[in-house]
Simulated scan of single mutants.
Amino acid sequence: MSSDRALSLLSRAPIFQNAREDDLLPLAALGHFSSLSRGQHLFQAGQPIESLYVVASGSVRVYRLARGGRRELTLHVEGPRQLVAGVAAFQSRAVYPAHAQALQTPTEMLALPVDAVREEVFNTPTLAQAVIGYFARRQAELLGRLDSLVFSELGERLAAYLLDHAADAPHALPTNSELAALLGTVPEIVSRKLGEFYRLGLIVLERRTVRVCDAAELARLAGSLEEGTTRKAGR
């Protein structure tokens, strides 16, 4: 049963998009599930990478500490079917480049032994093609995020974030400080903008859980961000 669940998750994970199910069977057989509570760490920066992790449910915050360890910088938040620190896992003798922490209880993870994943991917053309395509898309997403931090308004960035993370199901929000770090602003402005979206009926907020009510309007707000990115890319 666990193997069947693992196969279902891997076949829907973006990293293995368009890979054949038969090629995922050996990986699914090696996977095991575990649960984390809110605030519990999946791994710490500097630890050797022994497992490749895919989020089954819940969400995981990936962050780094500033010098002296007094400030945290949230790099990204990963939800269901997403890979956590996946790029580093394909480097030889790699260590985790950041910390990863569960944002809600429970957060369930699928762990795959990283050496076995590398061997299967390197020796299976369809898996290799899927992984290369995934990393190319991730690079484009990171460039798009950098572009948005420089050229877009906070409302556009927040709308895009909510559509990415809360369009299909309720999403456990990071703290306002963590969300501000993701969006390139300060916590007070994030709080005001979330309140504005709530009053306009675009979202429902229950404690730190958000659900999208008007995806079309959020898409319109985020659309100006996407259009601006497209125009700059075409120059």
Rank of each mutant, 00 (worst) to 15 (best):
L142T: 05
V87R: 15
L149E: 09
L142F: 06
F135R: 09
L143E: 12
R12F: 01
A28H: 02
N18M: 01
V150H: 07
V54R: 02
T185L: 06
D23G: 00
G223S: 08
S148Q: 02
E72R: 15
G39A: 04
D214C: 10
L52F: 15
Q17P: 00
L162H: 06
P80S: 14
H171E: 11
D214A: 14
P113K: 11
A181I: 02
S35Q: 07
T74Q: 07
G86D: 02
P125M: 03
R61H: 05
E217Y: 09
V131A: 06
P106I: 12
E153F: 09
R207D: 12
G201D: 09
A136M: 13
H171G: 01
A94P: 04
A181D: 13
A140C: 02
L200M: 10
V212P: 05
F16D: 02
Q44Y: 10
Y53W: 15
R157T: 05
L110F: 03
R145A: 13
P48T: 01
I15N: 00
N18E: 07
V186Y: 13
D164N: 14
A45Q: 13
Q139R: 12
T175E: 09
G39T: 04
S59H: 02
D168I: 00
L183E: 07
L110H: 04
V186F: 12
M1V: 08
H99K: 00
Y198F: 07
G195S: 10
S37D: 04
Q139P: 00
H76R: 14
P170I: 04
S92E: 08
P113W: 05
Q101L: 11
V62N: 02
V114N: 05
R145D: 12
R38E: 14
T126H: 11
P125E: 06
Q44A: 08
S8L: 08
L143A: 12
D168N: 08
F43C: 13
G31F: 02
L65H: 12
R71K: 15
P97G: 11
L10V: 07
E206Q: 14
T107F: 02
A111Y: 06
E120H: 10
A169G: 03
Y198C: 04
S2F: 05
D23L: 03
L25I: 13
R220P: 01
Y96F: 14
R38L: 06
D164S: 15
T229K: 13
